[in-house]
Design a protein around this nucleic acid. Structure first.
Lengths: 144, 144
DNA sequence: GTATATTGGTCACATTTGTAACTAACAACA
DNA sequence: TGTTGTTAGTTACAAATGTGACCAATATAC
């Protein structure tokens, strides 16, 4: 196993991915946390509601690739902060249709714009080709 | 804010990074979890001890970029499972020198080999150039 | 119709993590 | 020597997550 001496964690893609993911998430966090008191999951749920319109928690789960308990908690928190409204569906009383309040829409617009700028700044350190390769690789790795 | 309608979370690099990181970590997890009952942090600490030899928890913190409480817990867990030994440093009795037991070294060798193979398989889906670009971008994003 | 299975969503519990306070040992300096 | 500050590491508590049990509503099978 002579070779194993030469192997460094920094050559291990999952490790690198985690470092990069943690770092970038940490840098973006202030936008939704400081200003709106949201957690990451809440921001994701808010985003999906803003981006794809009113839908049930089940739909959010599928689209955001989040477990239903995580979505349930995020929805409760967003509701408590008046970022979304819940309306029971009369045709199937198990489910509720979630929709953003005016305040929720406003937060969505600002956070989306912030995300866009953030991403542009992040990608600006790479060439267009590098950016495309990066994106393509990440999508493949994420099994999207 | 017409443009914000077109923005999708999948175009947001931190989001993509997180999906890719979670997916790849999940896929590798069985190697250290099922076989050795380790957590991710424990595997990282074990790796640094195996790769860079006996050292104090403080050194591991610096090299592995982990907070000292996280390392402290991982060291306690690895010690309980007999993967490492702790020896008080007589020159400075605050610190302990950590070193892998025979069992720890064996686990290190196997996990390192597994990581290497895993990484090769992961990168095999890309061309050599793509791999280099990906690695370079990730290192930059991780601020290494 | 009644029994059974499935689904949307919540709750309760255990695990993991983050944060800050803490202890013990050492260092610096009067 | 005594006082103050720093450092290595642990502990205690809060916050967040994962997992499975759970409840009510609907669908399916008989």
């Amino acid at each position: 196993m002579r070779d194993s001496d030469a192997f460094d964690l920094r050559e291990f893609t999952p490790y690198l991915l985690n470092l990069a993911a943690e770092q970038s998430s940490l840098d973006f966090q202030p936008f939704y946390k400081n200003r709106y008191g949201m957690l990451r999951t809440e921001w994701r749920v808010l985003f999906h509601l803003g981006r794809y319109g009113p839908q049930t928690a089940r739909d959010v789960c599928a689209r955001a690739r989040l477990h239903k308990t995580k979505v349930s908690r995020a929805v409760a928190a967003l509701g408590a902060k008046r970022f979304l409204d819940r309306k029971e569906n009369p045709e199937d009383r198990r489910q509720e249709t979630l929709s953003l309040t005016r305040q929720g829409q406003s937060a969505f617009r600002e956070l989306t714009q912030a995300a866009r700028s953030f991403d542009e700044a992040l990608m600006a350190q790479f060439t267009a080709e590098e950016g495309q390769v990066l994106r393509k690789c990440l999508e493949r790795l994420a099994k999207l």
